[in-house]
């Protein structure tokens, strides 16, 4: 390993340790904002692992997140299974779902893929409701645990650490290299013998896996699960906006997008809550026009200026 790598690792470990002590120093409100932030860090980073190199904009985060939350709720509420078991099963189910969806759709390119994933969350929500209504029945899905927000925060932080380690490994693997080639030119990738379809499917699967895992961990925070709330299209959009704001070309890009966005979003929500949708639209425009490569791109440009 190069010195550069060691530097990055030390910085990452220090940042992670600092993040881990947040529950001891933050008040309840700051902690609940931190839970939201770390949830989006996980979602946006795992989203960027797939969408960054391949340029496939996926709006499926909400669908996988919902599958995670819903499976935990059904398992705990209707079958008295433990949270841990369901939290382990949920991401696997989502991964299988992602493989099926990936095989069917990743041959689609560009805008067709975006439209499909947008419809996916809605489709999964209706499918889940239909199954529950016709075959399972329900007495309300309660996820009653003794977890506090601090516990949920630490679990999410742990998942984020795993995502970062995975992303770091990916960047140095043959698979990551293959994905970057696919992103640059898929025809070239095919010609040099890369199995483009499977490379994309594997990455799409990991995105689904992590989104469902995060959904599963969040379920105890919501306590009572309704399909409408866990399969939220807004979530998918927020993930995309935050990741693009940070920049998807670097592993830590989404991180620098999520944290300022969460704070500004919180400020808008608590002070001008009637204008939050307007703000979302403006944020989109600003990102596209002013910082198309995200904060990461901005930092790089500044870095180059300083050097010259």
């Amino acid at each position: 390993m190069r010195t550069n790598d060691w530097q990055s690792i030390v910085i990452a470990v220090v940042l992670f340790a600092l993040a881990a002590i947040v529950p001891f120093i933050a008040n309840g409100y700051q902690l609940s904002v931190a839970v939201t932030a770390v949830m989006y860090v996980g979602l946006a980073t795992s989203w960027a692992l797939f969408s960054g190199p391949t340029h496939y904009i996926s709006l499926a985060s909400g669908a996988f997140f919902g599958v995670g939350g819903y499976l935990v709720a059904t398992g705990m509420s209707d079958y008295n299974l433990s949270f841990w078991l369901m939290a382990a099963i949920a991401p696997l189910v989502a991964a299988v779902l992602a493989i099926l969806i990936g095989l069917a759709t990743l041959r689609l390119s560009g805008v067709y893929f975006v439209i499909f994933t947008l419809g996916l969350a809605e489709m999964v929500r209706n499918l889940v409701s239909w199954i529950q209504n016709n075959f399972l029945g329900s007495r309300g899905l309660y996820v009653l645990t003794d977890f506090t927000e601090a516990h949920i925060y630490w679990m999410l932080l742990g998942v984020c650490a795993i995502i970062f380690i995975f992303g770091w490994w990916l960047g140095r693997s043959r698979l990551g290299f293959a994905l970057r080639i696919i992103g640059n030119d898929e025809a070239v990738a095919k010609h040099v013998g890369i199995n483009t379809a499977w490379s994309k499917v594997i990455l799409f699967m990991t995105t689904g896996f992590f989104a469902a895992l995060i959904g599963a961990i969040i379920a105890p925070r919501y306590s009572y699960i309704e399909p409408n709330q866990v399969f939220s299209p807004e979530l998918s959009f927020l993930v995309v906006i935050m990741a693009l704001l940070g920049g998807t070309q670097r592993l830590w890009g989404p991180l620098v997008g999520v944290i300022p966005f969460t704070l500004v979003w919180e400020f808008i929500n608590s002070n001008f809550s009637n204008f939050s949708t307007l703000f979302l639209g403006l944020a989109f425009l600003l990102i596209v026009y002013v910082i198309p490569r995200g904060f990461v791109g901005l930092l790089q440009t500044w870095g180059e200026k300083i050097r010259t």
């Binding site: 008040n27 309840g28 409100y29 700051q30 902690l31 609940s32 904002v33 939201t36 927000e149 969040i218 925070r221 919501y222 306590s223 009572y224 709330q229 939220s232 807004e234 919180e266 929500n269 608590s270 809550s273 009637n274 939050s276």
Partner: peptide, 21 residues
Amino acid sequence: EYDDKTNPGEHIKAVQRLATQ
């Protein structure tokens, strides 16, 4: 008063804000 936007995550944050801020 705060708006929770019919979103449990937002609701929890808003209640925390009322209690601690």
